[in-house]
Simulated assay, not measured.
Amino acid sequence: MKVSLITATYNSEKTLEFCMNSVLSQTYTDIEYIVVDGNSSDNTVDLIKSKAKDSPNITWTSEPDKGIYDALNKGIEKATGDIVGFVHSDDFLADDECISQIVQAFKNHKVDGVYGNLHYVSFENPDVVIRNWTSQPFQPKLLKRGWMPAHPTLFLNRKVYETLGNFNLAYKIAADYDFILRIFTSSKYSFHYLPKTVVKMRVGGASNKSLKNLIRKTKEDLKAARTNHLSFPLSVIVMKNLSKIPQWFKK
């Protein structure tokens, strides 16, 4: 099975090399690596060019976009793999076997999606775990409790995107939650939980950089819950936020 991995970048020179190396060091070889840059003004593009010279499986573009979800949509449109996943520029795959194990899970369980666990790590020292997002096998009732898999760990059959569409750009921060609700509320798809840390994310993402962003994200989460017809959407979002508290104590 061919895997398309997509990285969206914008002025990511501090973290991008670490991110790209985590992809390029995977033991699984049938990987198409798509890097979508938003017209960076630092050394990001030079770094991408340098990596692409030595790695024929890298394709990349650099042009203005409408934000990260627009960039990810561009990457999805370019993807030709059977499986599509994201490795954001501040993130990295947890070990060299991640993609191999994800592909094996798709083969063994005949599912449409595979997801795992995520570690939030220190920006300066990625060996230091700040927060541990441990997921669980999917059951529809979990959505009513505000549950979602960590989006960076979610790998999907490309046909899911072809059927349900890409990220809704009306959301600036919560398009991933909206998309997850779209696919996990559909009875058409099946999922497998891989009980391992798949991705490590440096702290300081777009959704938690400021109080203003946290408020906006909560409003967008509520909109997504209503749009996707969850019962008692306000209660769902309250539980969604409360469920994050134990993650700070699981190191």
Rank of each mutant, 00 (worst) to 15 (best):
N21V: 02
N21K: 15
N21R: 15
S22A: 08
L24G: 12
S25E: 13
D30L: 09
D30M: 03
D30G: 00
E32C: 03
Y33R: 07
V36D: 07
G38V: 01
G38C: 10
N39Q: 12
N39G: 15
S40R: 07
S40V: 06
T44K: 10
V45G: 04
V45I: 14
V45D: 07
D46F: 12
L47S: 13
L47F: 03
K49Q: 12
K51S: 09
K51R: 11
K51E: 07
A52S: 14
K53N: 06
D54P: 00
P56T: 01
N57W: 02
I58W: 11
T61L: 11
P64C: 06
P64L: 03
D65N: 15
G67F: 05
I68N: 04
I68M: 11
Y69I: 00
N73C: 07
K74I: 02
I76Q: 08
K78H: 04
K78T: 03
D82T: 13
I83E: 05
S89C: 12
S89G: 09
D90A: 11
D91V: 02
L93Y: 04
L93W: 06
D96P: 00
D96T: 12
E97Q: 14
C98Y: 01
C98H: 01
V103T: 10
V103A: 06
Q104W: 01
F106A: 06
H109K: 11
H109I: 00
K110L: 08
V111M: 06
D112G: 09
G113R: 07
